[in-house]
Design a protein around this nucleic acid. Structure first.
Lengths: 211, 211
DNA sequence: ACATTCTTGTTGCATTTGCAACAAGAATAC
DNA sequence: GTATTCTTGTTGCAAATGCAACAAGAATGT
């Protein structure tokens, strides 16, 4: 999982960024963007985090996806969104890089280094996104809650090169991520503990037991 | 959903393609590639179709994803695949375009038009892929079989600009795509018909009723 | 033309899951 | 420092779902 360019450095050198790109700060709960098909805007989280939210018919809102540091998002990744009921809301004070997809076609006036770096670095961010989406699809495809939890824990464990790992979010969020009922998930985690599959060390810290 | 380049024309002009790219034909059931992390190969289906298959522990194989004409696939979209148990198998006689991701960095010797077109057109194919993955995630996130079916039918209907539409694959494949048991899905379709939500016209042809 | 494989359709039953509701502890806001 | 919100944990129950098994029709291969 090598990085084709170092986005940390990149973000730190944004002082004289080009005229095709802007950086904006958002307060907690501010709307960052509403998804409108063919608007072709792209966003990169530089600081903070935000949620892609869908309003369904009944009026209740649901978190479709969460964006953390250096995640890419935008209408361009959601070409079918007929009712324009998708929007992105800051979960906390956040800094967002914004630009139009036509950046690939039109160079900026200054022909700046920043523009160039973005063009080189963006594909890697998108590939990471695709990989993340594929992983989530595989998890959501598992038929039982047990399989979903164990498969996800296995991935976390492998990412961490250790049987012990920390969840990247709360248990409530985990249920959302796996699209299962939270109480049913808690029940299954309890059974997995009893059956000796996992051990709960701390609030969000688990160990996968070999059997 | 505009096209940034016409891949049909593109594929028809492959006569003097560049030295960075190759086109290969595969017979039905032939293995096109095995996913190996960091191999960085990309593939585009020019003709035919293929399945991404996972061997699980028990030895039984499961279709993770299906690739049709002009779909892009490759290890590069699956960065976490520790056991290398993923491979792509041709469902029928297929023609596949293959190249390494470094095509972005290294121009070919001839500096050919083909190479240039690929660089311009590929991002659009990838964005379409991301959009498709996002749609599937939303469907898989629905909690009931009824919601999954109705949401998917709504998308097909909107794509077709009509309440009536044809499934792009068999009912058996639909159950796989939505990751639900086929018999449970058939039962639900029956209830949806009885409740007046849908009408079945033909084998794979349905109409969404307004109520 | 026949055999074989694939797809649709159906049902009973056990199991899994979502939902509702509640309580206690942790974290955060003011 | 207190109130408020968020998170974890638990349970009973009804509803949804997967599984197994079977049959008939359609499509495909030779």
């Amino acid at each position: 999982m090598k990085n084709f360019f170092n986005i940390e450095d990149f973000a730190n050198n944004l002082i004289n960024y080009c005229d095709k790109v802007q950086i904006k700060e958002f307060e907690k709960n501010e709307i960052i963007t509403t998804y409108i098909v063919n608007r072709n805007m792209l966003f990169i989280v530089l600081e903070g985090s935000s949620d892609l939210i869908r309003y369904d018919f009944n009026g209740n809102q649901m978190v479709v996806e969460r964006f953390n540091k250096f995640d890419v998002f935008g209408e361009i990744f959601y070409r079918i969104n007929i009712n324009n009921e998708l929007f992105v809301k800051a979960r906390e004070k956040s800094k967002i890089l914004m630009f139009n997809y036509d950046i690939f076609e039109k160079r900026c006036k200054k022909n700046c280094n920043f523009h160039e770096q973005l063009l080189v670095g963006l594909p890697n961010l998108v590939l990471t996104k695709v990989s993340d989406l594929n992983i989530r699809i595989e998890l959501l495809s598992k038929k039982t809650i047990r399989d979903k939890i164990l498969s996800y824990f296995k991935i976390l464990s492998e990412n961490n090169f250790s049987k012990t790992f920390t969840l990247p979010f709360s248990l409530t969020d985990l249920a959302d991520y796996l699209s299962i009922d939270r109480s049913a998930m808690m029940r299954e985690i309890k059974i997995l503990k009893e059956d000796g599959f996992i051990k709960k060390l701390d609030k969000n810290r688990f160990t996968l037991l070999s059997q």
